[in-house]
Amino acid sequence: MVQINGKMEKASGVCLLDYLTQAGYNLVGIAVERNEEIVSKADYDKVFLEEGDVVEVVSFVGGGSR
């Protein structure tokens, strides 16, 4: 299992680019962090998710101060 944005998903062994595309993420305007390290956009197709990975997919939302 891989933890993605707080949810456990069966994504071990899946290419990050394939996962993001299939899950319906708009690749423009997002950033991905894997195990607290930034994954650069150019590497999405080279990264394969591993058992126990913790992934965050973020984008901008309206905000001033919390």
Binding site: V28, I30, V58, S59, V61, G62, G63
Partner: peptide, 15 residues
């Protein structure tokens, strides 16, 4: 200013 939050795939609106 903007904030950074987890992306919701169902929300297609991009600020």
């Amino acid at each position: 200013t903007l904030a950074v939050r987890r992306t919701n795939t169902k929300e297609n609106e991009n600020i």
